[in-house]
Amino acid sequence: MIKENFFEQNHLLREFPQDVQQRLFPLLELISLPLGKVLYESGDPSNFVYFPTDAIVSLLYVMESGASAQISMVGNDGVVGVSLFMGGESTTSRAVVQCAGSAYRLNGQRLKDEFNRHGMLLFLMLRYTQSLITQMAQTAVCNRHHSIDQQLCRWLLLSNDRMPGNDLHITQELIANMLGVRREGVTDAAGRLQRDGVIEYSRGKISILNRPQLEVLCCECYAVVRTETERLLPWVFQKGCTVKTTEASMSAAKAD
């Protein structure tokens, strides 16, 4: 059994109604998500949904040519596998771990059963889905109309909102894949941010040093997503997630 307060690391889980928590929480399984792990491929039927705690999962659309671009990201604000409990069974996107960490895994059918009870969980999940759709729409516009510098700022801020701490363990190559641009473009943009003292980049780790300045440099897309998320899921930014999932806590959870 997993200790109760661990669930608070995922904001969506924390907001589950009490009766749903009692039914579902004993079924949650804390798992480790290494960088680059594919949770599901486009078109594959998926059996599980994932509630990240300190990991971030990217949903990518992969073209026939093999090129891919991120359509949205899910961290401790939500759940990976929306289409599973909404009856879609499979998706057109690929889910890849962009920042290593951990997540709670749940059998998708169990969440679907709860969803079909038409209780508060239904409204909660629909609101989350709407915020995800907003993020997708804004990403489409941003990728088309804004510079790589602005896209990188948006990506860093969205990632920072969805995980505890200010350090992102990720390579520039992976960011370039997420944004659907060449790596050199990301290197240049990250270099400019580092020169301005906004971020620090070293050996696959990006530390956000000056978040307010990052928001200034970003296009309006981040604010649109943030505002809509705050409106639909006000608890995401009101209650800071301070508990980190460490190796020790994971071991303790598994031992219990």
């Binding site: 909404m86 038409h118 990728n143 659907g180």
Partner: peptide
Amino acid sequence: LTILAGLLSRYLVVLQAQQALLNSCTHF
């Protein structure tokens, strides 16, 4: 209500898939 909720949910899945496609199409 179950049928209606099921239909609406599936429509949302389609809408999401369309947005994902739109995102990549406009980009590439």
